[in-house]
Design a binder for these strands. Structure first.
Lengths: 338, 338
DNA sequence: CTGAAAGCGCTAACAC
DNA sequence: GTGTTAGCGCTTTCAG
């Protein structure tokens, strides 16, 4: 299959290369019959513009990068990632963009990657997942004027020049904890995380909900995990010594681990210990017992990240976009005493 | 941060643009002190070649595509995908390639995508996961001379012009089934899949193992799933009516569903029914009971796919590469009667 | 060993 | 409305 050029298509259609270019780019002032003739030839030949040539002259590649910094090999298997990747990929297609994937496992790899991405002009913009608190590469992006949007609230809220899409982690944790209080629980433990702002916000929501109902926060009842199932399992084992009657777990994958820990020592959920998770992963409804959790709109988050970035690309970087999506308490068996 | 051009770097270093280009591309015949002076300027300025210009003149983008056709929204959450994606991403980085992601959900989307990919020359080559049996896009790739390697054996084995990386699905299923026979089982059911060649090969291995030990294959004992946990759950429920004493499940995610189905009706594993899975997902060892399974080298598969593709890119398409990686039986609790 | 110059395929300013 | 032309930043002959 031959690769055609504008010049050749022009010759076949009996017009100049510019006219063909205009037809392709939908310029208004083309005589209808010329336009039609050209389109005919394009259809027959299957001509498609060379993207390198286009990028070179327009300074736009129509490629956006999805940058996921320091994703641990194990944590990446959390179903959150496939979902967000799928959403982003799909939204890019819809908008005729291509998405390139950048996964780094160490901080050094990360900065090398950023250099490569930023300097060569391969990508028009970047979507960044706010995986951890080290965001030392952000100044580089800003220095090079690479538009980007972050998924998840930025760590440093004093600088408010970063566009982001977040879900309402604070409210979610507050719903979850309040729900447990309403069920009559007082010794409500938490399996927390400390790696990103989602964890920070969920922790705040948990604490605030307790305080509002006059329950003192007991630091003994807070254990830390890293979003992996194993870490949830281990955190639950530690918590068992403290005899909580309920646990708010900051992610469903850790909640699955926690359930396993309880199951192994024959503690009944929800009768002996109630559990609420966070994410509403596909499997949450299929666990036994089915998992009460906070549903966050993962797919929508990915879609919005793409649309926001493209909007920034097409207009300007101002104003900064900040979007916080609502979450929802989904009550299932793991928290219902009756 | 300014974006420099070759010309400017040349001026700063007191040489021509060609010399700078030669330094960057490691051409041999450059006087050492000139080379050094140029490298100095490059380091100081942080110069990086514009990739669009490079692609235009060299016909190479250093981008490879990862094409996953018709991935169901749910099936994509199988931890297999994150693992293979991570491996491919990492291997690309190592080789200074960028990976772009193409996920299609329908066949129409798929062919649109392929058109876009091949025609515009954005990518140098493609890695394709052999998700389903419809590979109608392959002729297009061949017509456009896009190098590609497939992950998983191609469906049509009569045409042997496709390079691929596969794991030994036949042997794996044979190991699994033989192991169950060795444990004394005779009524060995299978939860199979029918969507790709992996399923076909695993089915063959299962059947062959039975036949070799003089056990007739009972079609009643074979149920079909689609790799999802839910489908494994449902298939197991159907199988229960046939009272098997052991089940070979073609994927760990389906095995997890099967275990759940057994657990719900209080059937003990492995005492009442033994289970063997396939994949050795990270969670396989952490189930209760821990899952006997076939370990396949997912990460290695991804790495090899990238390396093979790059090799093809750098040399020629001949000879066709066919790699089949060995698998391994990992015996855990779910199959051990004693 | 290095520089000058052509040209990759496209867009857009400028003529007509 | 349409053609002509310059030029995006790079690699690569071809001279010297």
């Amino acid at each position: 299959m031959k690769r055609w050029t504008l010049e050749e298509i022009g010759k076949l259609a009996g017009v100049s290369r510019s006219t063909v270019s205009r037809v392709i780019n939908n310029h208004p002032n083309i005589r209808p019959n010329v336009r039609e003739r050209v389109q005919q030839v394009i259809a027959e030949t299957g001509y498609q513009p060379n993207s390198a040539a286009r990028s070179l002259v327009s300074n736009r590649s129509r490629i956006i990068g999805l940058f996921m910094p320091s994703v641990l090999r194990s944590a990446f298997t959390d179903p959150y990632y496939p979902q967000i990747i799928q959403a982003i990929s799909h939204a890019c297609n819809q908008n005729d963009y291509i998405v390139s994937l950048f996964l780094s496992q160490t901080v050094e790899e990360e900065s090398k990657m950023i250099q490569r991405i930023v300097g060569s002009g391969v990508i028009d913009g970047l979507i960044i997942t706010a995986e951890h608190t080290d965001t030392s590469f952000i100044p580089t992006l800003q220095a090079y004027d690479i538009p980007f949007v972050q998924i998840g609230r930025p760590h440093d809220t004093t600088k408010d020049d970063i566009s982001y899409i977040d879900v309402d982690n604070y409210a979610g944790a507050h719903y979850a904890t309040s729900h447990l209080i309403q069920q009559g629980h007082r010794r409500i433990a938490q399996i927390a995380t400390i790696y990103n702002t989602a964890g920070v916000d969920r922790d705040r929501g948990y604490r605030q909900a307790l305080v509002e109902r006059g329950i003192a926060v007991d630091e003994e009842l807070i254990e830390v995990g890293d979003f992996s199932e194993t870490s949830g399992y281990e955190a639950m084992q530690r918590l068992l010594l403290k005899k909580p009657t309920a646990v708010f777990v900051q992610s469903d994958s850790m909640a699955i681990g926690a359930l396993r820990a309880l199951h192994e020592v024959n503690i009944q959920v929800p009768q002996d210990v109630a559990i609420v998770g966070f994410d509403d992963l596909p499997s949450a409804s299929q666990l036994s017992p089915s998992l009460t959790t906070i549903r966050q709109p993962i797919y929508r988050t990915g879609t919005l990240a793409v649309e926001t970035l493209i909007d920034i690309l097409n207009t300007s970087k101002e104003p900064v976009r900040r979007i916080v999506l609502p979450v929802e308490l989904v009550i299932r068996s793991s928290s219902m005493a009756n």
